[in-house]
Write a protein that binds this DNA or RNA. Structure first.
Lengths: 124, 124, 124, 124
DNA sequence: GTGGTCTAGACCACA
DNA sequence: GTGGTCTAGACCACG
């Protein structure tokens, strides 16, 4: 169903996807993730690859596994807050980088963004 | 060397790439682009696909074809300014969309961006 | 349940285990050990192997067999004291050996150990 | 040639082994390790298992890999010092634990160790 | 050549 | 059932 970019390992792309789902609250703290086998079927990927994704996220403290029960989103809220913050900085960094490559100055970037958002907030 | 995403026609991905090169001044106004044949070899793509890319960009007024001479970046600066502006909005839209999906409000987006850029500009 | 190392006879590994249980008072002086049959089942090992273990420990004066009654930990306290002392020296030897292989001098070993224990004792 | 304990993953036992070799200077800073394939042959283990060992140690900053060249012991001495210290504490912890299970107090452990080492140092 | 990733299929411990 | 480990064999990017 979904496809993967060839330039980055699948297991990391899956990790990114899960991270985004956690940050957007599609996956909540303490929620159980699909088993490595089910997840493997869902994404047409080998269970070992899912296993690698889960291991990586567990190493980062985002997921926790309970032997014989499954893999769960951590309930340590500070980890999730930290994750949210990391993803935010990542996105901002990416955005600024692209804009600067296009020749925009910091001020232009901010003002462009404000223009775009001026309907949402009451202008500045 | 580079690979393409399966979710969007290759000819449009190539158009995006050329657009970015123009906006970032890698390709300057009036500059000649490689022939469809050379470009096809460079990206391991059928020359017809390149032709379609060039046609699309010509339709948008970004490129101009001179019979017997080749394809060139337009010298009409207003077109390039317009392009630059379009890409800017596109990037901003994408960025804001992702940030909102992550649950950030407009104000948080702007302040996060300012924090990131505060070293470049002298604050606001 | 437990498994054995391939580098040493199982009957000696079992003897070590029993020795440790005696020294740690899990097995007390005069206490009866399980029959060779029960012990064999417990460790998934042939009763003959257990018999060999018991014989070895009897030879060393740690265990005593009473015909028709079973095998018991000796009640001769001096033997047990001696055993305790032997195991201590064994452990110390092993520890020092490993530490020296890692390049630590005698002084470093002692100071490292004191650092580790300084919370238990009131320093020296 | 060598055998592994069933109670701990092979890839971690191999990591321990490499760590010990580094601390004992059998492997020096900057030295190249055997390729995953050679190492796999040496220990009669699948190259993927070696790969996992190398990855783990790289994640810990002990090893560094240069694509297409091989895997090397890091040249960052602080990492190696840190490793040496970690292994020291690990060994001490293990030793003290065993001794305490045998019923020895902290003072007895230290005095026993001093007795053992009294030939090396000039007593206390 | 090197390490890095992925698949397929297997066996294990835990609950 | 779950995740964790391991093997066998394959393809890739890098130098």
């Amino acid at each position: 169903m979904d496809e993967f970019n060839a330039s980055k390992p699948i297991y990391l792309q899956l990790a990114d996807r899960i991270n985004r789902q956690i940050v957007s609250k599609e996956l909540k703290a303490g929620e159980k993730l699909p088993s490595v086998r089910d997840m493997g079927i869902k994404y047409s990927v080998n269970p070992n690859t899912i296993q690698r994704t889960y291991s990586e996220l567990e190493r980062e403290g985002i997921l926790e596994t309970k032997r014989g029960q499954g893999t769960f989103v951590t309930e340590q809220e500070d980890r999730l807050v930290q994750l949210r913050d990391n993803l935010k900085h990542e996105q901002i960094l990416l955005f600024v980088q692209v804009m600067q490559e296009m020749g925009y100055s910091s001020l232009e970037i901010i003002s462009g963004l404000k223009d775009h958002l001026k309907f949402d907030i009451g202008d500045e």
